[in-house]
Measured scan of single mutants.
Amino acid sequence: KKTSWTEEEDRIIYQAHKRLGNRWAEIAKLLPGRTDNAIKNHWNSTMRRKVEQEGYLQESSK
């Protein structure tokens, strides 16, 4: 079943993607209940745009 993505999950994906790049299977290990494919789709459909537009979460990672 599809549940919506939480801010916490987005944060984990964002940090992991910065470190690992497009290694979705590795990132998926950090998110129980999410598949690598689901994460990749979420990144491509939602997060990548956010990151590019806003420099997503930069201000809170100090």
Rank of each mutant, 00 (worst) to 15 (best):
S60A: 12
I27E: 02
L57V: 14
E9L: 03
N41G: 11
Y56C: 08
E8I: 08
W24N: 04
L57M: 11
W43G: 01
Q53D: 07
I27D: 01
I27V: 04
P32T: 07
I12L: 07
V51P: 07
K1L: 07
N37R: 06
Q15A: 15
K62H: 04
D10W: 04
S4K: 04
I39G: 00
Y14W: 11
W24V: 02
W43K: 03
D10I: 05
K40H: 05
G55D: 10
Q53R: 15
T46G: 11
L57N: 14
R48G: 10
L31A: 02
N44T: 11
I39W: 00
G21E: 06
R49H: 15
I12N: 00
A28D: 01
E7R: 07
E59V: 08
R11N: 14
D36E: 09
W24C: 02
L30E: 08
N41Y: 04
W5Y: 07
T3W: 05
S4R: 14
T6F: 01
I39Q: 01
K1V: 09
H42N: 00
G55S: 14
R49L: 11
Q58S: 11
T35C: 09
K62R: 15
K29A: 13
N41D: 15
R34I: 07
S61T: 14
K50V: 07
L30G: 04
K40I: 08
V51I: 11
I27A: 03
A28M: 04
T35Q: 08
G55H: 04
K1Q: 00
E26H: 03
P32D: 07
E59R: 09
A28L: 01
K29G: 05
S4V: 13
S61F: 05
K40F: 04
M47H: 08
S45H: 13
T3H: 05
Q53L: 11
A38D: 13
W5R: 00
G55T: 09
I13H: 00
E9I: 03
T3G: 10
E52K: 11
G33Y: 06
S60D: 11
T3R: 06
R48P: 05
K2L: 10
W43M: 05
Q53M: 07
Y14Q: 13
I39K: 00
T46Q: 10
I27M: 08
K40E: 14
K29R: 10
I39E: 02
S61L: 12
N37D: 14
N37Y: 11
S61C: 10
S45V: 11
K50G: 07
R48D: 11
E52W: 09
Q53C: 12
T35I: 03
E54T: 12
H17R: 06
Y14A: 11
G33W: 08
R49C: 15
K2D: 15
T46H: 10
L31Y: 02
K62T: 13
T3C: 07
G33S: 09
T6R: 05
S60L: 08
Q58E: 13
S60H: 10
R34T: 07
I13Y: 00
T3L: 09
D10K: 05
E59K: 06
I27F: 03
E59T: 14
R48M: 15
K2N: 15
G55E: 11
L31K: 01
K2V: 12
S45I: 12
I27R: 01
K62S: 08
A28P: 01
K2Q: 13
Y14I: 11
I27H: 01
L31H: 00
L31G: 00
E52F: 08
E26T: 02
I39V: 12
E26Q: 08
T6Q: 04
E26A: 05
R11K: 14
M47N: 08
E26V: 02
I13K: 01
Y56S: 14
N37S: 11
K29V: 07
H42R: 11
S45Q: 15
E26K: 06
I13V: 07
S61K: 15
A28Q: 11
A28G: 06
V51E: 09
P32F: 05
E9D: 04
E52Y: 08
E9C: 00
Y56F: 12
R48N: 07
K40N: 08
A38H: 06
G33N: 07
S4W: 01
K29M: 13
W43C: 01
P32W: 01
E54M: 10
K29H: 07
L20V: 11
M47G: 06
G33Q: 05
K40Y: 06
R11T: 09
L31I: 15
K29I: 09
W24P: 04
I27P: 01
K2H: 06
H42E: 01
E8T: 10
V51H: 12
K29L: 14
